[in-house]
């Protein structure tokens, strides 16, 4: 039962990550490979604040939202100057810089050894100790984030973003400030990724830079693409499938030495397959990768 609870918690964390990336990819049409960096910043800021300053959950949450929002806004600025291919490399550069900083700034982050002994979350007087309590907490967060995303999808804000995604010049001629809209959605997406980082750090109680690599970003991108970029339920379905599918390999009985490699191959194959033959994902309608996507 503990195993199932653990899998559900991991699915919950990836639903939050995929939902947040979907806001960026699905609504602005940009691909960011820096999502894992924002996830990592959330985890490290939370771990350090809790261990060094014993700060409360809500203070940590506020700090992570502010830091990630600011970094997200800074990162989106070059997208107004360069093409989408180049923006992907800008996010790649940000991802590498964050990863190397976490890995090399040993005095602060513990370097490759990471940070261990991260205490459980305390919400007012509720100390979350058991896996079931974590599952409940993550369930609440998934619900709130899905609600926020739902509100964004139904709002006029989303319609403007879709207009920007389809035709930036047209959106400009309609008098829409595309800079503000893109900055807002990137800040929201990055902040939500940071929240996933907080939940992950306190659940696992140990973090190291290896959990926040560019491959992790590609995995989150795969979830969004396979589920369906721009759709409401697509990232949820993608997260469930991509977290559960490798678990099947465990039961088939592949040696653990090659299981990780097989899992990566599976993600790679699915990514290429969906980009080629089903760019709208499993339940999406927006054909993300076509030149004249509808």
């Amino acid at each position: 039962m503990d195993y199932i609870t653990h899998i559900l918690i991991i699915i919950g964390i990836y639903v939050i990550l995929a939902k947040s990336l979907n806001l960026i990819m699905g609504f602005s049409g940009l691909i960011s490979v820096a999502h894992s960096a924002f996830y990592g910043i959330g985890a490290y800021v939370s771990a350090l604040m809790t261990l060094k300053y014993e700060s409360s959950f809500f203070v940590t949450l506020l700090c992570v939202i502010v830091i990630n929002s600011l970094l997200g806004i800074i990162l989106i600025i070059p997208s107004f100057k360069v093409e989408k291919q180049y923006f992907l490399f800008i996010t790649f550069a940000f991802q590498v810089i964050v990863f190397n900083t976490l890995n090399n700034w040993i005095e602060l982050t513990g370097g490759a050894m990471g940070i261990s002994g991260i205490p459980p979350l305390v919400l007012i007087n509720w100390k979350i100790l058991s896996r079931y309590e974590y599952l409940l907490l993550i369930g609440v967060f998934v619900f709130i984030i899905c609600l926020v995303c739902g509100l964004i999808v139904k709002s006029p804000f989303n319609r403007v973003l879709k207009a920007i995604r389809e035709d930036e010049v047209l959106a400009l001629t309609l008098g829409k400030n595309i800079i503000i809209y893109k900055m807002t959605i990137f800040a929201i997406g990055s902040s939500i990724a940071g929240i996933a980082g907080i939940l992950y750090a306190h659940y696992i109680s140990f973090i190291d830079p290896g959990s926040f690599t560019v491959m992790e970003s590609i995995f989150i991108i795969s979830i969004v693409i396979i589920g369906g970029a721009g759709s409401y339920w697509g990232p949820v379905l993608g997260a469930i499938l991509l977290v559960l599918f490798p678990e099947i390999l465990r039961f088939i009985g592949f040696p653990s030495s090659i299981a990780a490699n097989l899992r990566q191959i599976l993600y790679g194959v699915l990514l290429v397959t969906f980009i080629m033959w089903k760019p709208q994902g499993l339940i999406g309608s927006y054909k993300f990768f076509l030149r004249n996507a509808k």
Binding site: I225, V272, F288, F289, L290
Partner: peptide, 9 residues
């Protein structure tokens, strides 16, 4: 497909 799709593939 857009060049972005080829890059990601």
């Amino acid at each position: 497909h857009s060049p972005l799709s080829l890059l990601l593939a």
